[in-house]
Amino acid sequence: MELAGIKFQFLYGEKAHSDTDLMVFIPEKSLMFLGDNVMNNRFGRMDNGTFKGNIAAIEMAMASGATVFVPGHGPTGDIAVPQAFQRYLSILREEVAKYLDEGLSDFEMKPKVVEALAEFKDWVDFNAEVGRHISVAYLEVEAEMF
């Protein structure tokens, strides 16, 4: 879409942070507005989305060629902003899948998953959100097994 001489590209990752989050890329400025698909040094709710979809949406954003990334919450930055959030989501999902495969419940795996996420422990709301994220990821991975 072009408005007032500025081109906007809209990127949509189905069922990412939610099923309605759009990302907006302004190619001329190499600028990507990520919406709540990405947070910077903090956590968002994942109750209405999927980790798998959110990871894919972040891949799409990073492949755009943008050099400036504006997250839904937290400071603007370079590609390290989406990379860090995607890393968090990927580690969490992979660890949950591993321990689910071993037969652990979400509360049994929590200490092990938290240990694997140690690099993110200083992010805003880590202690408040990590348990909820583990539970949501558990349900997501379990549903994919059927």
Rank of each mutant, 00 (worst) to 15 (best):
S18W: 02
A16E: 00
K7I: 05
A116H: 01
V81K: 03
S64I: 10
Q83T: 15
G35H: 13
S30W: 05
V24M: 12
G49I: 14
S90T: 07
E144M: 10
R87D: 05
F10K: 09
G131M: 08
E95D: 11
Y12Q: 03
G65A: 09
V141Q: 04
A56D: 06
F107W: 13
A57L: 01
A4M: 12
Q9S: 14
E94Y: 06
G72M: 07
D125Y: 02
A84L: 03
K112T: 05
Y12A: 00
D122M: 08
L11Y: 01
V68S: 09
F85Y: 15
M23V: 01
E115A: 14
L31R: 08
V24I: 14
D122P: 00
V81R: 08
S64M: 10
I58Q: 04
Y138T: 00
P111C: 07
A63I: 09
V130L: 05
L31N: 02
G131P: 06
L3T: 10
M32C: 04
H73A: 05
V24T: 15
F51C: 05
F85K: 14
R132M: 12
A118E: 10
A61T: 10
G131H: 01
N40A: 14
F8W: 02
N37Y: 04
A56I: 01
F25V: 00
A57N: 00
M32E: 03
A4D: 06
A57M: 05
V38P: 03
R87K: 11
D36A: 01
T20H: 08
H133W: 01
V113G: 07
A143Q: 00
D122W: 02
Y88I: 07
A80I: 12
E94A: 15
L11F: 02
A80C: 15
V38G: 07
Q86R: 13
L22I: 05
G77R: 05
E115G: 06
R42H: 11
Y12V: 04
A4E: 12
E59R: 12
G44N: 14
V70P: 06
G74D: 11
K15N: 11
Q83G: 13
Q86T: 03
F10I: 10
N48D: 10
G65W: 13
V124N: 13
A61R: 12
D36N: 04
L22M: 02
L34G: 00
V130E: 03
G44D: 13
Y88E: 13
D101L: 10
A137K: 02
S135Q: 12
G13K: 01
R132S: 13
G77V: 11
D47V: 01
I26D: 00
F33Q: 13
G35Q: 07
Q9N: 11
E14A: 09
L117Q: 01
S135R: 07
L92F: 12
A84I: 12
G35S: 09
F107K: 10
A57F: 03
S135N: 11
E102Q: 15
E140N: 00
L11C: 00
N48T: 06
I79K: 11
E102D: 15
E115V: 07
I79R: 15
K15C: 03
G35E: 02
I6T: 05
L104G: 08
K121C: 04
L139Y: 06
T50L: 06
G53F: 02
F8L: 11
I55F: 09
N127L: 04
Y138H: 13
F43T: 09
A4H: 06
D78E: 14
W123F: 15
L104C: 13
P71N: 14
F10G: 00
K29L: 08
L3C: 11
E108Y: 10
A84K: 12
L89D: 03
E14I: 02
